[in-house]
Design a protein around this nucleic acid. Structure first.
Lengths: 333, 333
DNA sequence: CTGTTAGCGCTTTCAC
DNA sequence: GTGAAAGCGCTAACAG
């Protein structure tokens, strides 16, 4: 099959390439007669314009980059899907380039470079906490940057995130209210903003409940399932076990259950609060309380913000950055 | 920030654009001296080559399209991730464009057109069953097409899929062996190849077990959670309830559990076999037997195939198509 | 070893 | 209303 170009179509239709282009884009004046003729020629030939050439000429890639720290986490994939839907809805042929940093700063750096070379019009970043200068440079360079879910200290950029502090405080108070005195905390890495915020909330909760946070019950995990398994293993195989656990993300909560099972404990051995939902929590009638986030909404907000920024003048005139905060809810039952 | 081009770099470094290009691509001869100078200039300026221009010139987009019928299904996202990893591993700057057809032929058609315009080098399709001519045309047009998970009748294309028939037969025999006589079947739409194959296997299973498949126990669902809910509702709210259910995909199985819960049945009311794993099946000690698929492996095979085809001459010389079959396993316990 | 140059396929002034 | 022509940023012959 010969690769067709706009010139082939022009030749076949007996008009100039400019006319074809005008028909394709619905721009400029074209008589109805010619338009129809061109359109039928296009159909007859099965011609498809080359989006790459178009992008080069227009200096618009019509693509948005998204970097998530974990493609296997349903939370981020839900965000991704919402963003994708939102930008596709615009109908302007936008699409999403999804990259996975796997919580690795180096991979994140590569992903940023990659997206920059692809000339994405905006980068949505749920970051590892690293690459601050590069992110700033990207923003200064005129690529819109929106931080999603996670912020980066010292950068003034658009942000759509959740309030991690207050609901975490509430969670600890809730557990204390149920009579727990030995509450373990499985944290995320403190390089990640959400992990820091969640921990801050936890501390506030302990204070409010008049409890002393016991160092050996505070474990720094890594937001992975394996991390959750390791954490619960450590907690349950030494004296002074906890009676309740606050777990800073969904994957680690899953790990906690896997670990409990592996250790031979009943799954309802502990009261657990999970920051972030687990798909099966509605079926899983253990002593599990969920802090329900709203990835759908977050993704929509991000998409909306991205498309709006696209309209505004690039970089330079960009007025104040925007910060939108969503509020997760502790689902007591 | 001024957008830098290769000419700016050339000017700054006092050499020609060709030299810059050679340094960038590691092609042709460049003296070590000049190379270093150019590289430091590039770094100093913070120059990033424009991948769009490069793609246009080289007539290689370095992108692969993937169309899945359901982005929310972990099965397909696992496939996607495996494909992505595999093509990124090549190190040639390849990336994946993921599109969601939402089981809708029209959306699938749009996605195909979109990817064709983006000049993706290959399309990986887990299809709805429609758009046969378009898919054929894409393949004829020189875009490699690999069917993943689902085949399309009458098309001779590369395929990586699972054997749905035999393990489904086995599942029914297994349920019959546990003494069940009233076994319900929740099918997928018969426009989808996997649904047809799974149903064929189910019928073989009934025959082998010497059971009569009862029409009112065979329900055509749609591979969605809602479909599963609707199906189990229908089955359980009329006389002659089943005692076991074969459920043709993971999402519908989830729906079955949601439905049972909603109807007030205990979750272990029925023996259930699910084609396709549920994330929590290992924790969920109900009467659930899973047919374990291997999306990781499928994705890797697809990625491998795609990258190999890329090496071979395009379209024309493409020798025989390849069909790889994976074998899911019934996990009895 | 390095520079000059001709495009890749399209859009977009600017003439007519 | 339509066409001619100049690039978008890069790479790849081809000279030198």
């Amino acid at each position: 099959m010969p690769k067709l170009t706009i010139r082939d179509v022009a030749q076949a239709a007996g008009v100039s390439t400019a006319t074809i282009s005008r028909v394709l884009n619905g721009s400029g004046y074209v008589s109805a007669e010619v338009r129809e003729h061109v359109q039928s020629t296009i159909r007859a030939l099965g011609y498809r314009p080359n989006a790459i050439a178009r992008s080069l000429k227009q200096e618009k890639s019509r693509s948005i980059g998204l970097i998530v720290p974990d493609m296997t986490n349903p939370y981020f994939m839900t965000v991704a899907r919402a963003v994708q839907r939102r930008i596709e809805r615009e109908g302007a042929g936008y699409h999403l380039l999804i990259m996975d940093s796997a919580e690795d700063r180096e991979k994140e750096r590569e992903a940023l470079h990659f997206l920059l070379e692809k000339r994405v019009e905006a980068i949505v970043l749920a970051g590892t906490g690293g690459n601050r200068e590069l992110v700033q440079a990207a923003s200064d360079g005129g690529t819109h940057v929106v931080l999603a879910d996670r912020t980066i200290d010292g950068l003034s950029l658009d942000v759509v995130a959740e309030d991690n502090v207050d609901v975490s405080r509430e969670a600890i108070v809730y557990l204390a209210g149920r009579g727990h005195r030995r509450i373990a905390v499985i944290n995320g890495r403190q390089t990640i903003s959400t992990a820091r915020e969640r921990y801050a909330g936890v501390c506030a909760g302990f204070a409010q409940a008049g409890l002393q946070a016991e160092p050996e019950l505070i474990i720094e995990g890594d937001y992975t399932r394996q991390g959750g398994i390791a954490a619960i293993r450590a907690l349950m195989t030494r004296p002074g076990r906890p009676t309740a656990v606050y777990c800073a993300n969904n994957e680690m909560t899953f790990g906690v259950y896997l670990g409990l099972q592996e250790l031979g404990f009943p799954l309802d051995e502990l009261d657990i609060v999970s920051f972030g939902d687990l798909e099966f929590s509605s079926l899983f009638h253990q002593r599990l309380t969920v802090i329900r986030q709203n990835p759908e909404r977050l993704g929509e907000e991000v998409g909306e913000l991205v498309m709006r920024r696209r309209g505004e003048g690039s970089g330079e005139a960009a007025a104040g950055r925007e910060k939108r905060v969503l509020y997760p809810k502790l689902e007591c039952r």
